[in-house]
Lab assay of single mutants.
Amino acid sequence: QTVVIGDTTYHLNNPEAAQQIAKELAKKYGLKVVISGNTIKLK
């Protein structure tokens, strides 16, 4: 699972954790979560 935040890319072996982290950050910073395949992007 790949999480992309701005110009930073994180690789996590746990998809659920990756999605949870993405949701928390999106909520905290008012970002939009875009999931395509096994890549999660925060914009």
Score class of each variant (00 low, 15 high):
Gln1His: 14
Gln1Tyr: 15
Gln1Pro: 11
Thr2Glu: 05
Thr2Gly: 04
Val3Leu: 14
Val3Tyr: 06
Val3Cys: 13
Val4Ser: 07
Val4Phe: 06
Val4Ala: 04
Val4His: 07
Val4Gln: 11
Val4Pro: 02
Ile5Cys: 15
Ile5Trp: 13
Ile5Ser: 03
Gly6Lys: 04
Gly6Arg: 06
Gly6Ile: 10
Asp7Ile: 13
Thr8Gln: 09
Thr8Ala: 08
Thr8Lys: 13
Thr8His: 13
Thr8Phe: 14
Thr9Asn: 03
Thr9Leu: 07
Thr9Ser: 07
Thr9Arg: 10
Thr9Cys: 15
Tyr10Ser: 01
Tyr10Arg: 01
Tyr10Leu: 12
Tyr10Asp: 01
His11Gly: 03
His11Met: 09
Leu12Met: 10
Leu12Val: 10
Leu12Glu: 01
Asn13Ala: 13
Asn13Glu: 11
Asn13Arg: 10
Asn13Asp: 13
Asn14Val: 07
Asn14Ile: 10
Asn14Gly: 08
Asn14Met: 08
Asn14Gln: 06
Asn14Leu: 10
Pro15Arg: 12
Glu16Ser: 07
Ala17Tyr: 11
Ala17His: 10
Ala18Gln: 03
Ala18Tyr: 09
Gln19His: 11
Gln19Glu: 09
Gln19Tyr: 15
Gln20Lys: 13
Gln20Gly: 04
Gln20Phe: 12
Gln20Leu: 12
Gln20Cys: 14
Ile21Leu: 15
Ile21Met: 14
Ala22Pro: 00
Ala22Arg: 02
Lys23Phe: 14
Lys23Ile: 09
Glu24Tyr: 15
Leu25Tyr: 05
Leu25Lys: 00
Leu25Ala: 00
Ala26Leu: 11
Ala26Phe: 11
Ala26Lys: 05
Lys28Phe: 10
Lys28His: 04
Lys28Cys: 14
Tyr29Gly: 01
Tyr29Met: 03
Gly30Val: 03
Gly30Met: 07
Gly30Arg: 08
Leu31Ile: 08
Leu31Arg: 02
Lys32Trp: 11
Lys32Gly: 05
Lys32Met: 13
Lys32Asp: 06
Lys32Tyr: 11
Val33Thr: 02
Val33Glu: 01
Val33His: 00
Val33Asn: 00
Val33Trp: 07
Val33Met: 13
Val33Pro: 01
Val34Trp: 09
Val34Tyr: 12
Val34Leu: 07
Val34Ser: 06
Val34Gln: 07
Ile35Arg: 05
Ile35Glu: 02
Ile35Ala: 04
Ile35Phe: 08
Ser36Arg: 06
Ser36Cys: 14
Ser36Ala: 08
Ser36His: 09
Ser36Lys: 09
Ser36Met: 11
Ser36Glu: 14
Gly37Gln: 04
Gly37Trp: 06
Gly37Ala: 04
Asn38Leu: 07
Asn38Ala: 06
Asn38Lys: 08
Thr39Val: 12
Ile40Leu: 06
Ile40Met: 03
Ile40Asp: 00
Ile40Asn: 01
Ile40Ala: 00
Ile40Val: 05
Lys41His: 13
Lys41Val: 14
Lys41Arg: 13
Lys41Gly: 03
Lys43Asp: 06
Lys43Gln: 12
